[in-house]
Design a binder for these strands. Structure first.
Length: 456
DNA sequence: ATCCTGTCAG
DNA sequence: CTGACAGGAT
């Protein structure tokens, strides 16, 4: 019945005016899936052969797919031969590393900047705002202030998510997850090669994980590292060998970029084999590394407070903030979630845990940058939560941070039938512009299971 | 804003 | 069979 209703609602695209029951049902059921699964689930079955001829012109176009970390689909395991297109690509690239296009940080509108400041700057905030419910769901922008960011419940939630990650999941045989290298405890001479290697390891793993399930990546990663233990080894490798090592993973342009980037990083007088530690620099200078991967490397390897937001984190945070917008296509929604993730990781980095914690400070531009393993653990905790608990069909009872989750609160309120609809928005200026008008159209959405259960 | 790639859910 | 999905590049 739920399914039927859902389907017909979708098919009909629901008219705004339809009766409130339908609208409500649609809202409740809106959380269809998007990203799914755990990175580990399913065993791969045989792999598919890499595609043959590239349809587009070589010129190394781009790769794409993924599924990954999060687990959605898996991918092929097998080994196949490389595609002609891939070979051509690799050859063409072999010689000259091309500088990466400079990424121009999208100048965000002042309006957005102001909004982000308002929502994420550390003012006290009254988190007592009532959950807003359909059909109207009227609420102000302030409704989206992350509860995780402030107050006692916020710090409690942050602590719980971190310890959930530390205890439960972690390290499930993922060899690239190794203890953080504390720069404060080593001589500079010892530190450099360690960081170089770790950055290289995490980088390779992240790229592989963008397209393949963990279980499959483990093998490839181990073989890769055995063959080229350092980025210098990779830079000196033969192009064909690199391709051969990637064979079976598909998306050969990624292998191409890695190879190209390795040469570039090794040759660059500034880097000399060590990837940049700043996320913006990583994204700007390393081919194949975008916003997400840059944040992952910067925080996991270098301990910086940089956000890493993948599809899972978009879902987790959109629920935490109660944003019922399209997390896949609405840029303002995506931007605000990145801004929230940024504020969160900075808070975690500076204020949470670790009584001492201030020594690891890197002087940089007369600015002290706190370094610790917390940013990396935090970011991975969010991703892990999104891939195992806060999935498209969430398992709210297992979630360590329901107490700061707006959507959970909304689901609970609806389940207990509080047909609340008392709009409490002071003035129109404050009306949230992120959420879809009738709670419709959003891809994220999503109520918690217990809410679903109470609405047959 | 759109394409790329390969897989699996529908 | 088709479409959705994923991070990056263009």
């Amino acid at each position: 019945m739920k399914e039927r209703l859902k389907r017909s609602l979708r098919a009909a695209k629901i008219a705004p005016s339809s009766d409130s029951i339908l609208v409500m049902m649609k809202w409740v059921l809106a959380g269809n899936g998007s990203i799914q699964g755990n990175r580990d689930s399913r065993v791969t079955r045989r792999g598919v052969q890499p595609p043959s001829a590239g349809t587009s012109k070589d010129r190394g176009t781009e790769p794409g797919g993924r599924e990954t970390r999060t687990g959605r689909r898996s991918r092929r395991a097998h080994s196949g031969r490389a595609t002609p297109a891939a070979e051509a690509e690799l050859e063409s690239i072999d010689g000259s590393p091309t500088p990466k296009r400079r990424k121009v940080a999208a100048p965000r509108g002042k309006k957005d900047a102001g909004l982000h400041l308002r929502l994420f700057s550390g003012t006290p905030d009254l988190a007592g705002i009532q959950p807003c419910l359909p059909p109207a769901r009227l609420h102000s922008w302030d409704y989206h202030r992350p509860l995780l960011l402030s107050g006692r419940s916020g710090s409690e939630g942050r602590r719980r998510l971190l310890s959930w990650f530390d205890s439960a999941s972690t390290t499930r045989g993922m060899p690239w997850r190794s203890p953080w290298i504390d720069p404060g405890r080593l001589d500079a001479a010892d530190l450099r090669p360690l960081l170089e290697r770790r950055a290289y390891e995490v980088w390779i793993s992240e790229i592989m994980l963008q397209q393949t399930r963990v279980a499959v990546v483990v093998d490839y990663w181990k073989r890769w590292m055995a063959r080229w233990p350092t980025i210098h080894d990779l830079a000196g490798a033969d192009a064909d060998d690199v391709l051969a090592a990637w064979r079976g993973l598909g998306y050969y342009s990624r292998a191409t970029r890695i190879y190209q980037a390795a040469k570039l990083v090794v040759q660059d007088p500034d880097m000399r084999g060590l990837l940049p530690s700043a996320a913006d620099e990583l994204a700007a200078r390393v081919p194949g590394v975008g916003r997400y991967t840059a944040g992952a490397i910067s925080s996991i390897v270098f301990g910086r407070a940089e956000p890493m937001v993948d599809g899972n984190v978009l879902r987790v945070l959109s629920r935490q903030l109660g944003i019922h917008g399209n997390i896949k296509s609405d840029k303002s929604v995506i931007d605000i979630i990145w801004a929230a993730a940024d504020a969160l990781v900075k808070t975690v980095s500076q204020h949470d845990e670790g009584p001492e914690a201030d020594h690891n400070v890197l002087e940089r531009d007369s600015e002290a940058v706190p370094l610790s393993d917390r940013p990396g653990r935090w970011g991975q905790a969010l991703m892990e939560l999104g891939s195992t608990v806060c999935t498209p069909k969430p398992d709210c009872p297992s979630c360590p941070i329901t107490s700061t989750c707006r959507v959970y609160a909304e689901g609970s309120a609806m389940a207990s039938n509080k047909t609340n609809d008392a709009a409490t928005v002071a003035d129109m200026e404050d009306l949230c512009g992120l959420c879809s008008p009738l709670g419709g159209q959003e891809t994220d959405g999503t109520k918690c299971r217990h809410a679903l259960n109470s609405y047959p």
